[in-house]
Design a binder for these strands. Sequence first.
DNA 1: ATCAGTGTTGCACAGGTGTGCAATCGCGGC
DNA 2: GCCGCGATTGCACACCTGTGCAACACTGAT
Lengths: 342, 342
Amino acid sequence: MDQIKPRKAFASAKQVAELAGVSRSAVSRTFTPGASVSDETRQRVIQASEKLGYHVNHLARGLLRKSTGIVCLIVADSDTPYMSRMVRTLARHLQEAGKVAMVIDTTGPSENVEHALRQTLNYRADATVVLSGTPAHSIIRTCLDNGQRLILINRDDRLAGPYNLSLDNRLAGRTAFEAFMKAGCRRLAVVTSDAGTPSLLAREEAYVETARKAGMTVAVARNGRTSYEAGAAGARALLAGPDRPDAAFCVTDLIACGFMDAARHEFGLSVPDELSVIGFDDIEQASWLSYRLTSFSPPVEELAAAVVDLATMGEAAAEDAPSSRFLEASLVWRDTVRENGA
Amino acid sequence: MDQIKPRKAFASAKQVAELAGVSRSAVSRTFTPGASVSDETRQRVIQASEKLGYHVNHLARGLLRKSTGIVCLIVADSDTPYMSRMVRTLARHLQEAGKVAMVIDTTGPSENVEHALRQTLNYRADATVVLSGTPAHSIIRTCLDNGQRLILINRDDRLAGPYNLSLDNRLAGRTAFEAFMKAGCRRLAVVTSDAGTPSLLAREEAYVETARKAGMTVAVARNGRTSYEAGAAGARALLAGPDRPDAAFCVTDLIACGFMDAARHEFGLSVPDELSVIGFDDIEQASWLSYRLTSFSPPVEELAAAVVDLATMGEAAAEDAPSSRFLEASLVWRDTVRENGA
DNA sequence: ATCAGTGTTGCACAGGTGTGCAATCGCGGC
DNA sequence: GCCGCGATTGCACACCTGTGCAACACTGAT
């Protein structure tokens, strides 16, 4: 039961070399693709390293090479289905490309964030991906000053150094407006949070501006952090009054779920007959039978692929890469916008 | 616009030492708590390193020390709200303890898993946390053979080497049965997946066995992988027949959501009046207005704290630590079990 | 037999850090 | 003035790997 655990230390290339009766260089070359080793020594090295359980030490390798294979993911609002899908998808794509993801959660006191960010620098990550909507600019400066390759996702602040990968949030705002128009809705609302995330603001503003140009006004509900509760609170604010809206653009699916639930269970409204709803993110819950939410679906796979491209790019190619790129979120039609009942 | 990016390389301790006019050792000692440095040199070192943007290279440090500060998280079913909460909570706790989380997603072809696991070894992680329910035993063997400290979460295979942290799944199964009994339900069912995860099996078996001892039979629905769809499929299998159950224990909240949605929207049943439901995991959706699901809530924070303890423990303490520990999931009462209508 | 050419191999250095050991410095006590 | 003592500092080694360079072996052609 209490068997002896020798806590076998990791084997080094030197030990493998001795067991195989070759030089340490031969071991190194065996595990370096394209290096010059004879078949015979390669076999002996492989045999020896399996016997000893040898695994190349990436820490030491990272010292020599310019690349450590580590990519850092800085994430906030990680309690969101959208964010966890992003993290998961990125991690998978990265490891398929031979990299490995190090995740740093910045949800919480910002003192920790500062500390956590030093980790990025400490481990000499090949690149840092910022998924967080609103980390302090100082963080980004620090990374940039240290020559870190930085990839910003869905942030609308345009800086010179980093690469920016964004969704076309303004297009989504306009499209949502047009969809409601076609459905014959006339009393518009938008439900959002007071987080002030640039991408959420862009969706909201484009929607409101387009409506204003068409001579319409939009009721705005802005409550708490970006969450299910924000949507429920928005419903309570918007639906209690006399002339309640008949269409609501929720800047996030999570908000949309909270909004719909409160509308149905607390106000007894029927979606989409009395109230049309459009969300954004196309989270898994959007397709659940209770919601069947019409929503904008961000091209997560494409996004992840683009990140991997940027993260694995050589120094030379990095110079030429465009520093900012927009991807389009397509509207997925389900059952929360009423049929053309003009 | 196209400003020059010098791609400033990282500063080394040597450069800091030169700028500060001290030896490299002094720099090293400045960043090593408890080392002997005079206040004056410490100040000069700190000033110089801020000027150069110096950050200790943890890769090099990891070569010398026994600890690299990296903890590896091996996760499957990461598209589950429960799993992403686990990962997020663990990452946060770890970084509060000065560690950093490296996540490896094993959802996908197992060839990748093997490759990804080598990463764990390659980076000399201080510990590896296995959150995945069903990875091959070979993986665990490999880790163990290389002296990796292994922490298994909610796996019911008891091995000698690793530490096991489990929920009391059998207790939950029994408790669910008793709750249904008290509510006056008599036609029991259990809804699960065919994933064969040990922890899910334990919940199911304890529930079924307890019922059998009480002289009752249980209808079982077992469909697909552990997901929302599994629950919906379970509902279609169980509720179409003549004497449908009036109580269903869903081994996962996700399954419960799918089950409830199909029951309501496809069979027009009312929960909890005609059908009582209990889930497990207490995911965020369980508290949404559309579900208000009675569910077992695992002590996620406590679990994470225990993991951090095990991961940061010194070599000596590790010898004495108990190799296996059970935590209890408490039942959170909401609105999916009918009131005592005996 | 000589030579050019090709494929392998080993040496030695570099990369950035922590730390034991010895040396140095300053200071108080005799 | 000398000695003991504690605090500080620098040297040099260790950790583990990748790779340029030179040496070597071997083949085939002249």
